[in-house]
């Protein structure tokens, strides 16, 4: 809303004159947007959304040997996120975040 509109409203209310209001506000709809609190929502290793199962787990649509279907997300101290499956394969050969090269250490894990 611009300043002018407010002026119009104020005058109408204060002066009690016959209303010269252009309009009155009857209803206000607020829209909130949200996204996951991560810097990247796609796993840079397998290029699948981190909230979906990784490319490997999708291929094995059956439950894995632990009877679990979960393909969890892992956040590093650098705030970059990946699928745990993807990242655990990579850190075996290089314990750095492939996006920022920082030493990889896990900040949290989950969905």
């Amino acid at each position: 809303m611009s300043g002018e509109d407010f002026d119009a409203l104020d005058r109408g209310d204060n002066d009690g004159q016959k209303s010269d209001k252009m309009f009155t506000l009857k209803k206000w709809n607020a829209v909130a947007m949200w996204s996951w609190d991560v810097e990247c929502d796609t796993c840079a290793i397998c290029r699948v959304q981190v909230m979906d199962a990784c490319l490997r787990c999708q291929g094995e649509s059956k439950k894995d040997s632990y009877g679990k279907q979960d393909c969890v997300v892992v956040w590093g101290e650098c705030n970059h996120s990946f699928h745990f499956c993807c990242m655990s394969l990579w850190v075996k050969q290089n314990n750095r975040c492939p996006l920022c090269q920082q030493e990889w250490s896990i900040q949290r894990m989950g969905k």
């Binding site: 840079a44 290793i45 993807c86 990579w90 050969q93 290089n94 492939p98 996006l99 090269q101």
Partner: peptide
Amino acid sequence: RQTSIDEHGWAPT
């Protein structure tokens, strides 16, 4: 390069 200590080597990205 498969193993590299800097950002220039291979990465799955």
